[in-house]
Design a protein around this nucleic acid. Structure first.
Length: 600
RNA sequence: GCCCCCGUAGCUCAGUAGGAUAGAGCGUCGGUUUCCUAAACCGCAGGUCGCAGGUUCGAUUCCUGCCGGGGGUACCA
């Protein structure tokens, strides 16, 4: 059976109906396109109440044009629509129903159920995958913690967002390359070196020790300006390749990376390329030369700058008055390097919104450079690089700031969440085999989900009670639902097949679930288009809610209408649905970076 | 000063390329289990969608102004 695209069929039939009912509409110059099936397809929406139908088309806009009132238009079109569809197909895919000024399409639920479940059970986790991105390269830079600073929850958001985006784009066939761009260079290392020489322990330093030094020197420097001078001098030495200073810097890096790696392993965060700002040390001068040759640079107050022809943007600083480079210089060199190396279609920077101006400057400089060098438009970076910004993580109404020491260590958060998960398991499922591993999965799942349950650009409050809550709209809730589904599959000792009696899945609860399942592919596209993993998080909550409702539905006698019953035909139909939900829930969680336990 | 983001139920958030009575979770109160995992489900209560205009058949959604919160605004990242 060829797959029916209900949406397209409905749009097409509606367009035809318009032309049949109002044959003179084409006499109106310039209005034709609003009656063609593409326009209608694009303007289809979901009815508020799913009982009204699967798609809806509002006709208010036509009232003036057709000189008729919306209710009449909807009624006439719906009527004609039904006539047309009955004449053209054997099995009726949908029924058009006029409600007010809307034409609602009640689609044939049995056909949709069959199409959807057959496809999911056949493709399994590949359902919703596509080849859309085939041949396209997309770089995703995320996490990028700073050496010598602890991995705080401030870095949690970029890490989780980027990791998820990488997986989402891969699902759509893109070659997505995750980049961890470590903050391993810059004047703060001058401060670190001075602090370490003054107060540091000789051995067995942890990141926490280094961080104490970092906070201390920031405080001291506020009182004593000489420290800042010393720090600048130290950083200059580092840039000049001083042996002793470089060894210290390497030492800081080793300590830090050990901690970062431990956290990435705990959280199952993946990268394809781990690099750092220092990687660009020998690549900045050539970029500066290019900019000079393009006559874009100038000296202002002793600093080397690029003036941007935008009154909204301050000039981009390439070199400070003391000759040291800045992070914009490094990002410029980095972007040009990545362009040479990858020829990407898109380069995403998953970085907090505080750096919006910085990225605007960097992208603007690139734009000016490419124009000045007359690079052909199809070979330009311009427009391909994007700042994927996100809001702050606040704690007790304060912004997290590593400089002020107002920070929560991510590892503490994970440890607490895992410990709590362990407690819950012992309380609820003490016989569980791999308690340690499951507790880790759940604890980490809770932490990850806490960052994805809010839209990117909003600030999030870090609230222990919320992160450590495993009930309601949380990661563990989704995981629990998944475990439940797996439990059903275990208890059903027969093979799950898609060759079932689809008419048995006719109740509202089952229909809602199938509708959600059928929406999944489009949803993944939307998430990618908006760089917004939260779409998937919200979707999974709805899917899980719909399933749990079905799972605990009661019969008329007040008892649970069990999925596995003596009615073999019914059970086999329901189990096909169960399996499909399990597949999608697991896949959706994977896209968020969360593991789906089979038992918990 | 200028620029950007945010302002939806007591709290945390969905909903926004305009559309049909604005939805969840947490918290309060009440109910459901001789157990297909109650980390669940059902119900009650809770809203001038910051305020005021404008565009529109229709605005939480778009535009303007204002109020409130946050961020940014050349030698930090």
């Amino acid at each position: 059976m060829a797959k029916i695209d209900f949406k397209k069929q409905f749009a097409k039939a509606t367009a035809q109906a318009f032309q049949t009912v109002y044959p003179d509409i084409f006499k109106k110059q310039g209005e034709e396109q609003v009656f063609d099936n593409e326009f209608i397809y694009e303007n289809l929406e979901k009815p508020k109440d799913p009982q009204l139908g699967r798609f809806a088309f509002p006709v208010f806009r036509y009232a003036k044009l057709l000189n008729d009132n919306p209710n009449e238009i909807a009624a006439k079109i719906a009527h004609k629509n039904n006539q047309l569809i009955k004449n053209t197909s054997e099995s009726v895919p949908f029924e058009a129903v006029a409600t007010g000024g809307f034409i609602n399409a009640k689609i044939n639920a049995e056909i949709e159920a069959q199409q959807t479940l057959e496809e999911i059970l056949t493709k399994s986790s590949e359902y919703g995958s596509s080849k859309k991105g085939k041949g396209h390269k997309i770089l995703v830079e995320y996490s990028s913690p700073n050496i010598a600073k602890p991995f705080g929850i401030g870095h949690l958001r970029t890490t989780i967002l980027g990791n998820s985006l990488r997986r989402i784009f891969r699902k759509l066939g893109y070659e997505a390359i995750g980049i961890n761009y470590l903050g391993d260079w810059g004047t703060q290392f001058g401060k670190m070196i001075v602090a370490y020489k003054k107060w540091g322990k000789k051995n067995k330093n942890t990141v926490a020790d280094l961080y104490d030094l970092y906070v201390k020197i920031h405080r001291e420097a506020e009182q004593d300006n000489k420290l800042n001078d010393e720090a600048r001098a130290a950083f200059k030495k580092l840039e000049d390749g001083d042996k002793e200073i470089t060894a210290l810097w390497e030492y800081f890096k080793t300590i830090s990376w050990a901690e970062f790696e431990r956290i990435y392993n705990l959280m199952d965060i993946e990268f394809d390329w781990v690099t750092g700002e220092s990687f660009l040390n020998d690549k900045m001068e050539q970029v500066i030369d290019r900019l000079k040759e393009a006559k874009l640079t100038s000296i202002s107050e002793g600093a080397l700058i690029v003036e941007l022809d935008d009154p909204q943007l301050p000039p981009c600083l390439l070199k400070k008055a003391d000759g040291a480079t800045l992070y914009a210089t490094r990002d410029l060199a980095g972007l040009l390097y990545r362009w040479d190396k990858y020829k990407f279609d898109e380069a995403l920077y998953v970085v907090g919104s505080a750096q919006a101006v910085h990225f605007k400057q960097v992208f603007k400089v690139i734009d000016l450079l490419e124009k000045a060098e007359n690079i052909p438009e199809n070979n330009r970076i311009d427009g391909r690089a994007k700042h994927i910004d996100f809001g702050w993580v606040k704690f007790g109404d304060k912004m997290m700031s590593t400089r002020q020491g107002n920070i929560i260590f991510l590892e503490d958060v994970i440890n607490k969440a895992v410990a709590l998960a362990k407690e819950k398991i012992k309380e609820k499922n003490p016989d569980l085999k791999n308690i340690e591993e499951t507790a880790l999965t759940i604890g980490v799942g809770a932490v990850i989900f806490s960052q994805l349950s809010v839209r990117r650009q909003k600030d999030v409050n870090f609230d222990w009670n919320e992160v450590l809550n495993f009930e309601g709209e949380t990661g563990p809730y989704l995981q629990y639902t998944h475990a439940r589904l797996c439990s059903l599959i275990r208890n059903y000792h027969e093979e799950i097949v898609s060759d079932i009696n689809y008419s048995l899945l006719h109740n509202e609860e089952e229909k809602r679930i199938i509708e959600h399942l059928s929406d999944f592919p489009e949803l993944v596209h939307e998430a990618a288009k908006n760089y917004e993993p939260n779409f998937i998080a919200t979707y999974l909550l709805k899917l899980s809610g719909a399933f749990n409702k079905f799972y605990q539905r009661k019969k008329e006698d007040g008892k649970i209408d069990k999925i596995i019953s003596d009615d073999k035909e019914l059970t086999s139909a329901r189990m096909a649905l169960v399996k499909a939900v399990q597949i999608i829930l697991k896949e959706g969680l994977y896209l968020l970076g969360i593991k789906a336990p089979e038992e918990m």
